[in-house]
């Protein structure tokens, strides 16, 4: 194999978020309609590494992914050591819209997975006019906690290894080994308590069951894709969500789990590309 640079450019953006200075790491590639990608809890933009290198996307979309504060190469705010990290729907929305404004994204497509899929529903509820379309991956209105989150952050259990252990079964059994273990590596590298802090939003603060029926897909189309092996946001959770929202439908992705863009990009693209084509066609008509 000869050496080559990928299509991806990574940069740091300095901006105020939630009243504090932040240093946020952003990767992007391609030209065209902005496609803002949101990673899962306890992980980072590397989950979108294949999409950021996919010629069929880059010809028509400016693919952008950023690490949330505390994640990947984005720093926590100064003074982080004085408090527990807990993501809330309010803060998550402020961060995303702060990035959209700072990058001057005009009518981007937002695509988020897991917690990113949940906040995509919040975006559809609160900012439908700001987005061309929204794609929720592994998106449910709520998930019941099924294990004690305290195991994710305590000194007698290695945080990286237990986080990877918690999510390993969420990957489809037939996903390629290299992509499976790359996905787990991201979890192994998360900061102490960060996955747990993200799950505060996922399991407690971000419950949308009573509100999702108010999502107006005539203002902003909503697409839902979920992997069949995901037991965190299960196919039934996604079907239940779709049944509550007029004008959307759930597509269950065979063989995939909770991390479609990272665990098995070729299969995921067979589901994603037709949606992106539809979004492009609608944009041309408009």
């Amino acid at each position: 194999m000869s050496a080559y640079f990928e299509a991806v450019t990574g940069r740091y953006l300095q901006l105020p978020l939630l009243g504090k200075p932040h240093r946020i790491y952003i990767e992007e590639a391609g030209e065209g309609i902005p496609l803002l990608c949101l990673h899962t809890a306890g992980a980072d933009t590397r989950q979108y590494r294949a999409l950021l290198n996919e010629p069929r996307l880059l010809a028509h979309f400016r693919v952008i992914a950023f690490d949330l504060p505390w994640h990947g190469k984005s720093s926590p705010p100064a003074g982080w050591q004085e408090a527990d990290y807990q993501l809330t729907s309010h803060d998550y929305l402020q961060i995303i819209m702060g990035l959209v404004d700072a990058l001057q994204l005009d009518q981007p497509v937002a695509m988020g997975c897991s917690i990113g899929g949940r906040i995509a529903l919040h975006l559809a509820l609160e900012y439908p006019e700001r987005f061309r379309a929204i794609i929720g991956l592994q998106a449910g209105a709520h998930v019941d906690p099924y294990y004690d989150l305290n195991w994710l952050h305590r000194p007698d259990v290695h945080g990286g290894e237990v986080c990877a252990g918690i999510v390993s079964g969420l990957i489809g059994p037939t996903s390629p080994q290299a992509d499976r273990w790359e996905t787990l590596w991201h979890y192994m590298q998360g900061g102490p308590g960060v996955f747990k802090g993200d799950l505060h939003f996922y399991t407690k603060d971000g419950d949308l069951r009573s509100q999702v029926s108010q999502i107006d897909t005539s203002k902003c189309p909503l697409y839902l894709l979920s992997g069949e092996y995901d037991y965190s946001c299960s196919p039934d959770d996604t079907r239940d969500l779709a049944a509550r929202i007029k004008g959307t439908q759930a597509v269950i992705m065979k063989g995939l789990g909770h991390f479609p863009m990272s665990e098995n990009p070729p299969i995921f693209l067979t589901y994603l590309l037709p949606i992106l084509d539809a979004i492009r066609s609608a944009s041309r008509v408009a």
Binding site: Y146, S168, G169, L170, Y231
Partner: peptide, 16 residues
């Protein structure tokens, strides 16, 4: 050898 979804992992069994 190829467990169906929901039976393929210990935590999947816990979730159900």
């Amino acid at each position: 050898a190829n467990p169906p979804p929901g039976f393929h992992d210990l935590m999947a069994l816990v979730k159900r």
